[in-house]
Design a protein around this nucleic acid. Structure first.
Lengths: 220, 220, 220, 220
DNA sequence: CATGAATGAGAGTTCATTCAT
DNA sequence: AATGAATGAACTCTCATTCAT
């Protein structure tokens, strides 16, 4: 399997690995990839810049290592939900909660994820594509087909599209927790305190999705 | 009203203004705000860097001027729809079409919009907030309340939340037209050719929204 | 015609151009191409490093500009000799004198020339080849063929080879004026003061060449 | 006798010594002294960088050790010719052949030799001077004086100068086998295939030297 | 109003050398 | 005797901004 760090990196104490990745996360999140300063990251992590380049061939490689790790976290959260019991609505609820938790727990990591959508970094997203979303796609599709078979949801819609729309809605929810831009946006739509009530937010989103899935959505 | 360019800028020939803004758009879109080179923009626009700084106090101001202009385009598209006849579903359809057109016509402008969500630029988004979305919020709210009053849609949901979710879905659609990252994401969900069929995309999204609005979404 | 500096360089005062090239020459001569520090060169020349990069795209381009200029000096010296009257022996004598003068006057320039033979710089010599020696080759060949026709020298040898050997001998003479290595070498062969007597050196070399050209060189 | 490696170096297996020197030779030849990376050399040699510094006090010492070894090879070739029978012309022929063989067999070693003439390395050549050429000087002088005594060659020229010129010519021949710069130079003088015909090259040079030694070189 | 040469702080990256194990 | 992780000064190059003309 392809990795973006040199092999030395895995042989240093885990605590040091964490310090380096965390320093990277906070710098990348705060200043974006082009604005981040790798010498500053090294200093924050308490290592020399020379060591930094012993572990990662370039600023880009450090960034990709962080992204991949973030993706790992997401994927394992997803797998847990995938393996759990409950119907589609319960599972989606779990996903929404997981997204909220993730965004609350690792806001910086999520901010970095967001940054990858900027064009200056498109060559990076191309490097990672495929790895990125395939996990969730399969999960969604299986869940939706099952629910259709059980007559739980409207089966006239294409499961792939539904999956995309739901995932979009959840992703946007997450963005609203981390990105200043989306925070502002949310305040404008919902008032200044909307972000404080996770329960309300989850409930509203779930209700919206529920309707879409039940789907009196037939356009006559 | 606050502007980000110096007043001289408005006094030069409109054609020159366009050349400058267009050069900026293509550079910012291609390389992101931090990666963009303002000397290159000046050269592309056929003006001197000295003049550039006569018109705009900083790289940031040029960027903000461009964003604001983009926003103007969006706002006027919205107003046109707002003023048109038709029920909520027809209006939403118009919005989806408009979003597609906008993304197809000004992909670079839209890319820049996207970039603003990155944290490195959060101080910029804070500067612009308020201007950005207030237009659409009012439009949505009016439209939804009206539809509720007419019994066209489920009235148990909060209009503000519905507005946000719909806008999120449309925004994501737009992202999928411009950002490499979202393009890849869409391909993973829908296969390699999904982006070629605008009709299919619009129909699917509208059906999803229709269901959500009709809303057998009551969670018992 | 291809140049290695940007066009701005030619538009700045000649005196400044000279200061920059001279600073470059002395730094490159003293420390070799890889050892030379372009920031130091800029400082020595009294300009900012930013300006340096406005004039030359890279350290390499500055180097190549200097080399080309050196070549120009050589070429014009050669042309003068070429156009002068006198038989082959007189012309070769002039060349030897010119080589001595050049080495005495521009020892650093000549040192740089020498450095180009090192493998680390082979990509540079490839860039310049063709430009480099074609001038002298034509000059030599014409001169030798003429002398053969006049019966002045042995005509059984190939003019091209003779030209190469003579040029080699003169080149080595020059090296002995500039390179520490060749200076040491010469001292070992000729004693510590050999380099002080230009006359002796010229006379010895000319006598050696004279014999070779007259050429009882037939190998039975 | 002065050596440039630490004494430990001689106590490790000879095969390891060879591996280290060979790795050094190929790296120095390819990238020059300043460009060579001593960590890379250690890796290529299959030893740790720590050991490298146990054997050699510095990058420079490794380089000097290699040079000295190269010099040993040259010296022994010379001694063999020195001890052989034959007149001066036969011996010079042997030297030319030896030079060709050496350049063909150890092109990298010879390239390194060449690099030493660059000024960035002048402090190194000063360190080595004396060792370098004294062997050949004595050899030449003895050979030439003998030939003069036998009336084989013109005795009006200074044996030391003749020795230098002949050695210069042979050295240049060698350069033409290894240095890209001199290869290009030779092609310009002799056409693209000159380097393929060792016989022709040897014959031409010998004929030239023969004439010079026979010396109708008296300048009236 | 317009120009564009000039600036220099600061970026990412390299590598000879050290030293604890 | 051997290891190789760690160091950090030093390098080349970029670019937002200024200012004399």
């Amino acid at each position: 399997m392809e990795t973006y760090h040199k092999s030395v990196f895995t042989r240093i104490p885990e605590e040091k690995q964490r310090r380096i990745l965390d320093a990277g996360i906070s710098e990348f999140a705060a200043r974006g990839f082009p604005g981040a300063n790798i010498n500053v990251i090294a200093r924050k992590a308490g290592i020399s810049i020379g060591s930094m380049y012993k572990y990662f061939g370039s600023k880009e490689d450090l960034f990709l290592t962080i992204i991949e790790q973030a993706h790992g976290l997401l994927a394992s959260a997803l797998e847990e939900i995938d393996g759990s019991s409950g119907d589609i609505f319960e599972k989606i609820e779990k996903m929404v909660r997981a997204a909220q938790n993730y965004a609350r727990q690792y806001p910086e990591l999520h901010q970095i994820y967001l940054d990858m959508t900027s064009e200056g970094l498109s060559h990076l997203s191309r490097k990672l594509s495929g790895k990125m979303e395939t996990v969730s796609v399969n999960f969604y599709e299986r869940m939706i087909r099952e629910a259709m078979a059980q007559g739980l949801i409207d089966s006239r819609q294409n499961p792939r599209w539904i999956a995309l729309f739901i995932d979009n809605l959840i992703l946007m929810l997450q963005y609203s927790y981390t990105s200043d831009y989306f925070k502002e946006r949310m305040k404008i739509f919902l008032g200044p305190n909307a972000l404080d009530d996770d329960e309300k937010m989850a409930a509203s989103l779930l209700q919206f999705i529920h309707g879409a899935l039940k789907g009196e959505g037939s356009l006559k």
